[in-house]
Design a protein around this nucleic acid. Structure first.
Lengths: 200, 200
DNA sequence: ACCTGAACACCGTTCAAGT
DNA sequence: ACCTGAACACCGTTCAAGT
């Protein structure tokens, strides 16, 4: 799948190329090091070319955040689907492990997704985030029906669970706890949500 | 306390002035809008003057993070000290409320404190953060002794509690939940930590 | 429809020189 | 000891003009 001999005037898939390059720059060097001019240079277009596809730098960052939420959603669904359908604790563990894997794999992306400093009309980002919350809420309802979780608003319980995992990821990403401590915290936190199905 | 007529060659307290100006710029306009050159302009020194006090931009951001941890520590201690000494749930509520007040008051500062993208030798930031964790752990031990909290590693329980609050703050700062929802989540989360002392 | 090249108004950082 | 002014190598963004 090699590119044509002399790069043509039109790139053809510049938008996708920008997103791919930006994603790996973000992961490897962080948001501060991500420059539209450098991306353009690496891809081989003029520095003004990105402007055709993203009105400004934040628009590209927003697009990365949206892509992040979509990938997170895919990974969560995949993990839960792979767990036994009749073992709620195992399903919860799978979801939690998948979330923490995602969240601690790419600290800069996680920050982009949740920091909330998006473009004024960033309804797309908010919308993309809701898919994941929906999945979480569905799982909570499942656990409530099987008697593994306390009753009450499944949305609230899901949010508290999510917040706990997000907070643990923040501690890891901020180098305040190590990965081994993370596992212990996650286990303790999940046990707190499950009622009487495990030793404290 | 007016400044002398014609600004003198030496500012006198430039380091402090930079930190003060940076703190309010951060709060009002965010990290991206914080520029050393603009701070220097506002204060009335040359654009190279900040370099004397902070080797680079990140050094100033690190100093802001350290100041943030110190203020957080003060506010937590003050809130806990004001709560009745013999009412653990009330003391826990006070600490939690104080933390969330701090964390949702200045989203940009919170991100600076916990994002962990500090200068390579940023031992100062890590050290400053430990004071708050120490206070949290002490409170947990208190609650375990009075029978309000589950037994086990007080450090771990404290970390999980802290992570939960941090996560809720992230949801608020990222505009994913509103302030009224926040209160409900906090109440539910705290109730989960307290054993049998409140209705679920 | 998509991209270029020049231009504008910014940055952070360095360093000789000034007080 | 502390600050200035010029210089360097970058940015993001805009816009006429090119293909």
């Amino acid at each position: 799948m090699s590119v044509s001999e002399e790069r043509p005037y039109h790139h053809g898939r510049l938008r996708e190329a920008l997103l791919e390059a930006a994603e790996s720059t973000l992961r490897e060097h962080g948001q501060d090091q991500l420059s539209l001019r450098k991306l353009a240079r690496d891809i081989g277009v003029s520095h003004a070319a990105p402007g055709r596809h993203f009105p400004d730098r934040q628009a590209l960052l927003d697009a990365l955040a949206v892509a992040g939420f979509e990938r997170l959603d895919r990974e969560l669904r995949k993990a839960v689907a792979a767990a036994p359908a009749d073992d709620f604790p195992a399903r919860l563990d799978a979801a939690v492990a998948a979330y923490l894997h995602f969240a601690t794999q790419d600290a800069a992306l996680l920050e982009l997704m949740f920091s909330g400093k998006h473009r004024p009309g960033a309804e797309e980002v908010r919308a993309a985030s809701e898919a994941g919350f929906g999945l979480m809420e569905g799982m909570i309802r499942e656990g409530q029906e099987s008697g593994h979780l306390e009753q009450g608003s499944s949305e609230q319980v899901g949010m508290v669970l999510f917040a706990t995992m997000q907070g643990i990821a923040t501690l890891v990403n901020g180098d305040m706890i190590g990965r081994s401590q993370m596992d212990a915290l996650v286990e303790r936190a999940v046990a707190q949500f499950l009622r009487g199905t495990r030793p404290a």
